[in-house]
């Protein structure tokens, strides 16, 4: 049973890891600058953006998934735009899953990074400017190093959160073998078909990964006062 199981599981694991890695990378590129803006801006728009970013924390994944399904559909606003760029179908595709995960995991990157940036006082940013550092220089050589731990925390959280995502994937990805059948969906399938042994194995795997991720995060947060930054 175990061997037979093995053959089917690796594409699923690999797909899940790819999705998590891709989502983390994109959120790193987009979420970190957004967090910097959120931490520094005094614009009134900031509150709106902050609320939008936090929405996935309170909305049922099905609601988010439903709207994403509509937006990603060939005639939806993202779907048609993607089509204009020459992309294929977004719903029930890997690209669609990445978009979904991106939205769903956004707060998990933005919140720790924003609060890490928030710990940097205005005064220090101004001092950096007076020492000759322009806006980009300040971002790369002051803000990023100071927020290093927050960014790492955001990455780990995003990665782990994407690995365990279920509702949004179900709504926009379906369960297409080797295209959108990520781990959490596969577990659901196994339970449905009463294959508890497989469900156990996958669940235990996910549990272990999430637990390790959290240990890692708490260790990052714990390394204060030992003389090194």
């Amino acid at each position: 049973m175990f061997l037979a199981f093995d053959k089917n599981i690796w594409p699923t694991v690999s797909l899940t890891l790819q999705l998590s890695a891709m989502t983390t990378l994109l959120l790193l590129l987009f979420g970190v600058p957004l967090s910097w803006w959120l931490a520094r801006s005094r614009s009134r728009l900031r509150l709106v953006v902050q609320a939008l970013v936090a929405l996935p924390l309170v909305l049922p994944p099905t609601v988010l998934g439903f709207y994403l399904l509509i937006a990603l559909a060939p005639r939806g606003f993202l779907g048609s735009f993607w089509g204009m760029l020459g992309g294929g179908r977004l719903v029930f595709s890997f690209a669609g899953l990445v978009i979904g995960s991106f939205c769903y995991s956004l707060p998990f990157m933005v919140q720790p990074v924003t609060s890490a940036f928030g710990a940097l006082s205005d005064r220090k940013v101004e001092v950096a400017a007076s020492l000759g550092a322009g806006p980009w220089d300040r971002f790369f050589h002051l803000a990023l190093p100071v927020a290093k731990r927050g960014i790492l925390t955001g990455c780990v959280l995003t990665f782990a959160h994407t690995m365990g995502e279920f509702g949004v994937v179900l709504m926009i990805g379906g369960n297409i073998t080797h295209v959108t059948d990520v781990l959490s969906i596969t577990i659901y399938e196994h339970v449905e078909s009463q294959d508890y042994a497989s469900a156990h194995l996958l669940s235990a795997g996910l549990l272990l990964i999430s637990f390790s991720a959290l240990i890692l995060i708490f260790r990052l947060g714990d390394r204060r006062g030992d003389g090194s930054p």
Partner: peptide, 10 residues
């Protein structure tokens, strides 16, 4: 200034 202006990560 009177505040601590040094960068803590350096």
């Amino acid at each position: 200034s009177q505040e601590v202006d040094l960068f803590d990560h350096l």
